[in-house]
Each structure stands twice: as C-alpha cells, then as structure tokens.
C-alpha cells in the first residue's frame, strides 16, 4: 500500500460529512445509506473543550479481527492494502467486532454483517468530503514525515 490515512483530530470540526460520504458509498440496500465505517467520536476533554476524533480502521498488519475470525472472512486485498470483510465467508459470530482493540468494526443493522473500512478500492470517499483536512490520504512517506515532523526538524537543526 502506498497511501495512508493521516488523521489530525485537532482539525476535525465534527461536521460528519465523512460519515455521510461513507454511508452513501457503502449502501446496503439500493438507494439507502449503509452503516458508516468511519465514526467521529466527540468527547469532553474538560469543562470548556470538546475533542472530535475521526476513528477509522487502521488496517493493522497483525489485525486482531482477522486473527480471531474462525472462518477467514477477513482477507487482505493486496492491490489496495485493505483488510476486507467477505460476507460470504462470515458466520456472524461477533468475534471480530469484540476483538478489534480500537472499536473500528461495526455491525450493519440491516444486513447483520460486520462492516469495516475497505479503503473504497484505494480511493477513500471520506477524505474527499472532509472540509477541514482532518483526514487526508497521503503517500506513506509524506504521512510519516508529517507525523514525526518536530523530531525531524530538531535533527535537521543539529546537522
């Protein structure tokens, strides 16, 4: 996989456009929105401050959901780098939903199958609808640099 999500909670305004984009991209019945695989969690940091964090599947290399799945319903799509849930292999045991350490797999109430981020075949729709740049889809190197920028700058100064 070449690109990664770069999530910056401090920029998120909790408009939930990403959730809508996701729900309509993954409609479970024709014309009806599906269960969103991205979720903006709003928590109270202190009396005056709310923190909004877009939560989305991290596509873990050693994913707990895929490990616990007894029927191998979660398989890697090597083209997009997404860990994809295959409904046909699923026996709806609820283990993956319980096992994800980040709570990023959901149950679709309509189809009763677990749903998770499939990276929209390598072109995530949530990113396109984010107005504030809280969630971006960057080449791995760029995302990595952004993440640890302060340290890199310090190193650059010492050189």
């Amino acid at each position: 996989m070449e690109n990664r999500f770069h999530v910056r909670p401090e920029l998120c305004i909790a408009c939930k456009s990403c959730e809508l984009a996701c729900a309509f991209t993954h409609s479970s019945l024709q014309g009806q929105p599906g269960k969103s695989r991205i979720n903006i969690k709003v928590i109270k940091a202190d009396e005056s401050r709310l923190i909004n964090t877009p939560l989305i599947c991290l596509q873990c290399d050693e994913a707990a959901c895929a490990t616990i799945c007894p029927t191998n319903a979660l398989q890697w799509n090597l083209e997009t780098g997404a860990l994809v849930h295959h409904d046909l292999r699923c026996v709806r045991c609820h283990l993956c939903v319980a096992a994800c350490p980040f709570g990023n797999i959901y149950f679709d109430p309509v189809t009763d199958y677990p749903v998770k981020c499939d990276l929209c075949d390598g072109d995530p729709m949530c990113v396109k609808f984010c107005p504030s740049g809280a969630i971006t889809w960057l080449p791995l190197t760029e995302a990595e640099v952004n993440r640890i920028q302060p340290e890199i700058n310090e190193e650059a100064d010492t050189d």
């Binding site: 928590i43 319980a98 096992a99």
Partner: peptide, 16 residues
C-alpha cells in the same frame, strides 16, 4: 483480554 470491552468503550480509549 482482546475480548473484554465493547467497541464503544474501546473507541473512547482510542480517542483518549
């Protein structure tokens, strides 16, 4: 211990 908390509580911890 992966199977002890619900998805909602795990999300709260992740945000935290």
């Amino acid at each position: 211990d992966y199977l002890e908390q619900c998805a909602d509580c795990k999300q709260k911890q992740t945000v935290d």
